[in-house]
Structure formats: structure tokens, C-alpha cells
């Protein structure tokens, strides 16, 4: 999966699950997801479960940190690095 595919997938999931009615253009690649309260801890776990399933990766408990998941851009980088290492 390339970066654009991962970004689109993550963006659609977050908009559908956690931001019903939000205009898609308001959610940018750099919107802060965790530090700006868009994803609470439960939402973060749901997102991780979705990424694992749809990207075929396994995310270790130690990797559930804001540095990996705080924006769509960071998610894409993180998922790609996971895919490259498997």
C-alpha cells in the first residue's frame, strides 16, 4: 500500500467513525488527532484495530504512542514502516 492509499483509508475511517457530519476538508494530514482531542483512548484503540486488519500489520502495545498516531501523516509513515519490516 502506498502512502496516499493509507492516508485515504485512515481519513475515511476517522471521519465515519468519530466525526459524523464533519466536512472532509477540515481533517487534514496534519490535524492533531490525539493532542487535540479528536481521538480519545478508546477511539485510538479502535483505529489501531482497524489498521491492523486492513493493512495486514500487527501493532505492538509499545507502539501505541502519540508519535506514531497523532496525525494522518504520522499514521501513514508508521504503517508503511511496519509493512516494510514484515
Amino acid at each position: 500500500m502506498n502512502s496516499i492509499q493509507i492516508r485515504t483509508m485512515a481519513r475515511d475511517f476517522i471521519l465515519n467513525e468519530f466525526l459524523p457530519g464533519e466536512r472532509p476538508e477540515n481533517l487534514t494530514d496534519s490535524t492533531e488527532l490525539i493532542t487535540d482531542g479528536i481521538l480519545d483512548s478508546l477511539a485510538t484503540l479502535k483505529l489501531v484495530a482497524y489498521l491492523e486488519k486492513s493493512c495486514g500489520i500487527e501493532i505492538a502495545p509499545d507502539e501505541l504512542v502519540p508519535e506514531n498516531l497523532n496525525s494522518i501523516a504520522q499514521i501513514a509513515n508508521f504503517v508503511q514502516s511496519k509493512q516494510a519490516s514484515t
Binding site: P20, G21, E22, E32, D36, I38
Partner: peptide, 8 residues
């Protein structure tokens, strides 16, 4: 308002 703005 934007939901993102409200949450932020």
C-alpha cells in the same frame, strides 16, 4: 461549528 474545532 466544525466538530474538529469543538473537540480541539
Amino acid at each position: 461549528l466544525s466538530l474538529i474545532e469543538l473537540k480541539r
